[in-house]
């Protein structure tokens, strides 16, 4: 359509492709702050888009969920709004792609190399295709969100140590069942309530990337971190398929390539930040324990029951083996 939208700061919907006079604006919503690596890398992405499009495309950034919660944004994207948001497989699992959830099971990946191999596989491409049919297109998946570690009030080394311990998890079936399978008592709770709950013993522990653990000041109330890296948390940026189709082929290509490039920048920042946070946690008196290969094997072993719960999650037949094979294992 050619709506004569004179005052478009929004350039939405039909105003899309050929309109050179007013730039195509896309709004990017995410939960992180501007200071976190993700926040800085999105800014980089916006710069890249502006530069490489010669000013004909523009990303408007909304940190701290200012544009709305993730599910709200995704519904809006399906309705054709000009929005991009950050989301990961645990979310897509709840969104009707149950198989994606397995990537966020405990101890699924051994190394980040495994992650990158999987992202290049046909299996992953198929999943993205299914998501596209549901109205969402993934622009880039190579963004490291962090490696999730286990922080506890008393020292934990082996799976036996967390038996019955109350560990806080985000309210998602995959996360919750993952820790229940390891023998802990999973407590879904809003992140904002965790500090006091750790302090008074309602919780025994919490898991998250080091940056979040430090950002929430949990080091004041829990003194042990086990470097489990139980989830290699990569995340993705997605856009509404309908809106994407209103853009020209070059514009679409530009979004894909810049998202990927900014992702590499993000991963560099994440790596630096991880080092810094680790040091700050140590300085705050936290004891950080690395796992030996044998101990890691023990945790992997303990996580196995989770991968036999396919019926609970609605996974495809033999999903675990399929995905392992896609990683070349």
């Amino acid at each position: 359509s050619s709506t004569p939208n004179t005052d478009t700061a929004d350039g939405t919907g039909g105003a899309g492709a050929a309109n050179a006079a007013s730039p195509v604006t896309i709004q990017v919503g995410f939960e992180n702050t501007n200071e976190e690596p993700i926040g800085q890398a999105v800014e980089k992405w916006a710069e890249l888009v502006e530069e490489q499009s010669g000013g004909t495309m523009k990303l408007e950034l909304f940190a701290n969920s200012a544009l709305g919660s993730k599910s709200e944004l995704i519904d809006q994207m399906v309705m054709g709004e000009n929005i991009i948001t950050i989301a990961d497989g645990a979310f897509y699992a709840d969104y009707g792609l149950p198989d994606m959830g397995i990537l966020y099971g405990p101890f699924f990946f051994d190394t980040w190399e495994d992650v990158w191999t999987l992202l290049d596989s046909d299996w992953y491409a198929d999943e993205c295709e299914k998501l596209k049919e549901k109205g969402l297109t993934i622009l880039a998946s190579n963004w490291i969100y962090g490696e999730r570690e286990l922080m506890t009030k008393s020292k934990v080394v082996t799976p036996a140590d967390i038996k019955g311990k109350k560990i806080r998890l985000a309210s998602s079936q995959i996360y919750v069942e993952g820790f229940n399978a390891l023998g802990a008592t999973a407590v879904p709770m809003a992140l904002g309530d965790v500090y006091t709950s750790l302090q008074n013993g309602t919780l025994d522990g919490v898991e998250n990337p080091l940056s979040t653990l430090y950002g929430q000041s949990f080091q004041e109330v829990a003194k042990y971190i086990l470097m489990t890296g139980h989830i290699k948390n990569f995340t993705t940026w997605c856009i509404g398929t309908d809106f994407l189709n209103t853009l020209s082929a070059e514009q679409q290509e530009l979004l894909y390539s810049t998202a990927e490039e900014a992702g590499l920048y993000n991963n560099e920042l994440q790596e630096q930040a991880d080092e810094e946070y680790r040091q700050m946690l140590v300085d705050a008196g936290v004891e950080i324990t690395e796992l030996t290969d044998d101990q890691l094997a023990e945790w992997k072993e303990a996580a196995q029951p989770f991968y036999e719960m396919g019926d609970t999650f609605g996974w495809s037949e033999g999903l675990y083996d399929t995905v392992q094979a896609a990683m070349g294992k």
Partner: peptide, 15 residues
Amino acid sequence: EFISVLARTGRKTPI
């Protein structure tokens, strides 16, 4: 309209 979008995508509560 909104409900029909939800019915189409079939979004459900996580647990």
